[in-house]
């Protein structure tokens, strides 16, 4: 297997060392990695889920608007960043794989390398619950 581009490798190393949950995808939206903090929130270790396609991860956590309506994948910040190559931010509900609901805020940013090459995206997110 070929190694990932340096931008993704460094992003993963950053994510591993952050105390906030983080996602990393390739340009096609395949979820390549999420860190331990994200595992705690999403309810499953990355080792068990493995990489997921954008079609899979964009619905598996059942995102809903703050008003409780289904949130279409295209409105998720990370999907918007994948489509536009620009940063995005939003607050919405998810349901962890363990069944817990969390109101989370997500900020996503494009991983743009030299000459503007798009290598993927990184999203950091946090809950709006005091306990977390």
């Amino acid at each position: 297997m070929a190694a990932y581009p340096l931008e993704l490798i460094l992003s993963r190393q950053l994510a591993e060392n952050l105390a906030i949950p983080a996602f990393i995808t390739d340009p096609a939206g395949n979820l390549l990695y999420y860190n331990e903090q994200a595992e705690a929130l999403l309810g499953k270790r990355f080792e068990f889920t493995g990489p997921m396609s954008v079609e899979e991860w964009s619905v598996i956590f059942k995102p809903k608007t703050k008003e409780g309506k289904d949130l279409p994948p295209s409105d998720l910040p990370l999907v918007q960043t994948l489509n536009t190559h620009r940063p995005s931010h939003s607050t919405f509900w998810i349901e962890s794989l363990g069944g817990q609901r969390h109101l989370i805020s997500v900020t996503s940013l494009p991983l743009l390398g030299p000459e503007g090459t798009f290598y993927g995206a990184m999203a950091i997110f946090w809950t709006n619950e005091p306990a977390l």
Binding site: A3, Y4, L6, I9, R12, Q13, E16
Partner: peptide, 18 residues
């Protein structure tokens, strides 16, 4: 190995491997 934290040594995530 910067920031690698001793995670599984997956060549896909190793700078310079290729």
């Amino acid at each position: 190995m910067l920031g690698a934290n001793g995670r599984p040594k997956d060549p896909a995530w190793l700078s310079g491997h290729d």
